[in-house]
Design a protein around this nucleic acid. Sequence first.
DNA 1: TAACTGTTATACTACATATATAACACATAT
DNA 2: ATATGTGTTATATATGTAGTATAACAGTTA
Lengths: 135, 135
Amino acid sequence: MWLTINLNSETAIYTQIRNQIIEGIIAGSIKENDSLPSVRQLAADLGVNLHTVNKAYNLLKQEGFITIHRQKGAVINPAENYRADQDYLVKLSKELRPVIAESLCRGMTRTDFIEAIDIIYNEFKSLKKEAKNNG
Amino acid sequence: MWLTINLNSETAIYTQIRNQIIEGIIAGSIKENDSLPSVRQLAADLGVNLHTVNKAYNLLKQEGFITIHRQKGAVINPAENYRADQDYLVKLSKELRPVIAESLCRGMTRTDFIEAIDIIYNEFKSLKKEAKNNG
DNA sequence: TAACTGTTATACTACATATATAACACATAT
DNA sequence: ATATGTGTTATATATGTAGTATAACAGTTA
């Protein structure tokens, strides 16, 4: 399993799991209609409680990324199910506003900020290439 | 006082206070060497406990934005005290990564994302103009 | 029928947030 | 000198979230 968690991180374990599955989708290491491990399996692999994984899966379900079937487990939805809509744009804006505010306060220009996000975009591009070569 | 808090928000009150003071700095409604209200005064104005405000102030102090003097109260530092350094860039990157990941997953391109941040940059530009006219 | 799935329920620990009081230490204006 | 206002420290309490530990339930499938 490509998924790893950091117990010392400030980020909640269930959030780390959620985030890494989303990264897995954009990297291409998991695709539409792929199944995720069962909550018990993934919990055992990560050394955490089943409820922690369950919480991550339910969050992903609520956000539209997966559908949970009894027996088939959690399955990645087609991309149409979670396209950016107005609600998401509002949520995104609320997340970004304090981040941009702090960067401005610390003297970063818009150009500096875009430089910072481009590093991240390039990392994701590399992940995608990597997954393509391995899959 | 230009500061308002939302008790129903998911964001902790002390975080809301911190964020709005940072926005106040970039808007220009508070400037270098300006004093913030005392913890008791601001707590009374906002209808919250003194410790909640104190927590916000100590966070701002730890981040370099203000210096807390006994008697003089909390004073905005000169910008040199909180310029973006390497540690901050690492923190920024860690904040942005999952946000960008989700936006990519939801089909947003880099261009779409920059469009979203530009709306925020324009809001801050308006705030700055507004504060200039009033101050 | 047995095994595996998500789900629900209960109980517990630990930590973060927020409040409520009270007292302390320091500076300053009266 | 004394009263006032400042940040600071110390308790105590309530609430919510995160995480764990068990156990049982309800479907599906081999």
